[in-house]
Structures are given as structure tokens and as C-alpha cells.
Amino acid sequence: MASQGTKRSYEQMETDGERQNATEIRASVGKMIDGIGRFYIQMCTELKLSDYEGRLIQNSLTIERMVLSAFDERRNKYLEEHPSAGKDPKKTGGPIYKRVDRKWMRELVLYDKEEIRRIWRQANNGDDATAGLTHMMIWHSNLNDTTYQRTRALVRTGMDPRMCSLMQGSTLPRRSGAAGAAVKGVGTMVMELIRMIKRGINDRNFWRGENGRKTRSAYERMCNILKGKFQTAAQRAMMDQVRESRNPGNAEIEDLIFLARSALILRGSVAHKSCLPACVYGPAVASGYDFEKEGYSLVGIDPFKLLQNSQVYSLIRPNENPAHKSQLVWMACNSAAFEDLRVLSFIRGTKVSPRGKLSTRGVQIASNENMDAMESSTLELRSRYWAIRTRSGGNTNQQRASAGQISVQPAFSVQRNLPFDKPTIMAAFTGNTEGRTSDMRAEIIRMMEGAKPEEMSFQGRGVFELSDERAANPIVPSFDMSNEGSYFFGDNAEEYDN
């Protein structure tokens, strides 16, 4: 993207840094990872977990959730003011799984939030270390993106479920800051804005008074975040219109849905970061690795190297396929839920299948599930090659597409044709070009129609051997075009429920 120079890199967003050079960025990201790792080690000690239990991804998720809940100030305040039966607002906890007599047992633990905050700050040299908290939120978000298709949420806001490739980060909490905003897809931002506008339509006082002023500035800020994701002048001009509207209503909703559809071809720039579970960072720190000293990046080879040398386990339900569970977590670790499966298959070195073909449910185990038949197995999170994460949407291309997802959002900077089903997408653009945004709409449609099938995206960008740390010898991959490109292809993934 041309304006790259004016933006802070995501590592800076990730670490609240002012302008830093590459070495400083690597050190501050490393410091953040160190903090998460030290916190995780301490929690495993508190909970008396064995090494194996500490490497269980379900335990990692519970521990991450506990610290996120302990620092969720708004919710904590709300819980104190609106006490609900049987919930102690000062405590947080969740299921911890232990191996007892050759069987997995679930144990519900409860801790004072104050105590968890103390352990977290102690692991982070006394700081609140917001960057580390956001990092864990993005890992949870990436896992949700890989596990669930947001059909219901899309339909509720009037969008087409086939636009799911635009929904990265749709389950990120509001408090995820600049680093969170960077990884949100165009569809996620559109959905947040539509929800806001709908509230304004239904509630006369939404934009009024002292609160209304705050609401208005939040609305304009979200519009600017979305505008910054678009790469064409016409899309940005249309966002200006939406932002400046005196009284946002149905016309703005129409414009936003139009823009979301246009992003299936004229893709937005959305950041991709490899955020790993805390149970990967903990053992690495415990083994003596100093992330701050060595430096770390979320968008280069580092996460690949770390996963190459990590042992992570997962509980497996009786009829689940461990290899499929591994694929789910591998995609989440690489922030690749909406990437082209052919690119992923090449990088991973084994075939990556669409969601609907995987015999696996989510990673988390519900409290009512029976533990008797639970097994555990090693997650295979290694890769054959590594590639640089991208934040450009890439230019655009036609490809055989599917009944489910009709476009992709690249996660890796790797040369390819970008699949999208042009006739299906263009069919949504018939007729409606009147109104105050008509010239911009016409211009956007013209650009979409001009998108050429034979153009290559990320020209000359390749993948790298894991021994090639400096990215000196790019390998331009070859793809098996007979395979499906979309992950949520004609899909039956479970729906995400809060």
C-alpha cells in the first residue's frame, strides 16, 4: 500500500510504541512475548500442572481467558453494579484439565481477579502490559475465525453469508486497541457500523446529549479505520460520505453494504499476525530463551520457528480426527482463516481442507461434555516452508469459486491468482447506482469489472525454506488448481455463540 510509510507498523501498534527502528520493534515485541511466557509459567505453578498438562491447549485457553477477564475493567465495573446470582464479580476462573488415573478430569478453578492481575503485572515488570493482553485477544479471535462461520451475524446486519472472507476479527472485544483495529476485516468494521446506525434509528437519543457526542466521535473513528483499509480513492470518498452524514440511517447502511461487497474484489488491507497460545510461549521462556534479547516478529519467520520446536497437546472428542484438529489450530496460529487453501497447503506441506470436510468441533470443551471418553493427542503445528504475512489485500483475480465463501483475504505475501467468483459478486451490483453516491458507485463498479483474471497478485513473492531466515531465496510455489480455494466452501461450520 502506498501510504505504508505514514502508518505505524503493526509491531508498533502491538507494543504501543512511538516510531521505533526494526531492532527496537523486535525487542519490544519480544518483551511482550516474554511477559506472556513468564505469566503462563507462574500460572502453571499456581495450578500445580504437570509439564504435559501445561502444554494442553484447553488449559492455555482457560488461563488466557482468566487474565483477560481480570483486566476487563468495563465488564468488571458492570458486574459490580449489576450483581447477578451466583456470579462473584471479583473472581474469575474456568475449567482446568488434569490427568488422573490414566483419565482426563475437569476441575473448575476460581481465583481472585486481583490475584491474577498481581501475577500478570509481576510477570511483566510491574506494568499492565496491555500489548500482551491484546495479543491474547487476537489469538482467540484468530481461533474463532478458523472455527466458526459468522453466517447468522452477517444475515442479521443485512449482509450476504458468502462475504465471510471479510469477517476477520469479528469476535475481537471493543477494547483491543490499535492492534485489534489493524486485524479487523472490512466486513467486521461494516458490521460494527451498521449495528451502531441501527441503534440510532431505533433509539432517538442515541446521537443526542453528552453521551451522543461520545457516540458520534466513536462512529467517526470507526469510519476512519474502515476508510484506511480501502485502497481505492472511490471507496475512500464513499467512506467520507458515510462519516460526514448528519443523521446516519438506511442510506448509510446501503452504502456500507455496497462497500463491503466491493471489497470482495477491490480488497481492503487487513493486517495478519501470528499470535500463538500462551502454552507455546511459556515452555520456550522456561527453556531459557530470551525473546527480548533475541527479538521477535509476528509477521516473519519467528512464529514458524517457534511452532517448529513446540509440543502442544489437545483434548480430542471420541469421533474427532486429531489431524483435522491440528489443521484448525495451525490455521489459527498463522492467522489464515480466509487465505486461499492452495497457498496454505503449499506452505504447510500437507493438504489443507475446507472447514466442512474437517471432523472436528471447536477447541474448547463445553462444561456439560462427558470427560470419560476424552483422549488427548499432539497437535501437528509444523510447516514445510515459511512466508511473510501481508497486510495488503493483493490485486484481484477471477477463479472458480464456491457456493460458500466467494473470495479470499490473503494472509501471506505469496504470488498467486486470487480466487473470487466474479459473476456471483457482480450480480449483486445491478441497477442500484442512484442517489448521492452514484458517481462513486459507478466508478467502483467500473474498477471491479476491469479486474483481470490473468493478473498475478504479489508478483514474484515466494515462500522460503525454514533454514532461509533472511528470506534470501524465494520459492514461487505451484498450486494444484483442481483443489478448492475457499475454506468455508459450501460450508456447515458451527455458528459462533458468545
Rank of each mutant, 00 (worst) to 15 (best):
M1Q: 10
M1T: 10
R8S: 00
M13K: 04
N21G: 01
T23H: 15
R26G: 03
R38L: 14
S60V: 10
I63W: 07
E64F: 09
F71T: 08
K77W: 02
D88F: 06
D88Y: 00
K91H: 05
G93A: 04
I96A: 06
Y97N: 10
W104A: 06
R106E: 13
E114Y: 13
I116M: 00
W120K: 10
R121P: 01
N125T: 11
G132F: 02
T134P: 06
M137A: 03
S141E: 09
D145S: 05
G158H: 12
G158M: 14
M163R: 00
A178W: 02
G187H: 02
T188W: 03
L193D: 01
N202I: 09
W207N: 05
G209E: 07
G209A: 05
G212Y: 02
K214M: 13
T215A: 14
N224S: 04
Q235H: 06
R236T: 11
M238C: 08
M239H: 05
E244F: 01
N250Q: 10
F258A: 08
V270T: 12
S274Y: 05
L276I: 10
P277V: 13
A278S: 12
C279R: 03
Y281P: 11
F291H: 13
K293W: 01
L306T: 14
L315R: 10
L315E: 05
R317Q: 07
E320K: 12
N321V: 10
P322N: 08
K325D: 06
A337G: 13
F338S: 07
F338T: 12
L341G: 03
R342V: 03
T350Q: 07
S353Q: 07
G356Q: 09
A366E: 10
A373V: 11
S376M: 04
S376D: 03
W386I: 08
W386Y: 12
T396G: 10
I406D: 06
I406S: 13
V408L: 11
Q409P: 00
F412R: 04
F412C: 08
L418P: 04
F420C: 07
A428H: 14
F429K: 00
T433A: 06
D439E: 04
E443H: 07
I444M: 13
I445M: 00
I445K: 09
R446Q: 04
P453F: 01
M456Q: 14
F458P: 01
F464R: 00
D468E: 08
D468N: 10
I475Q: 01
M481R: 15
G485C: 11
F489R: 00
Y496D: 06
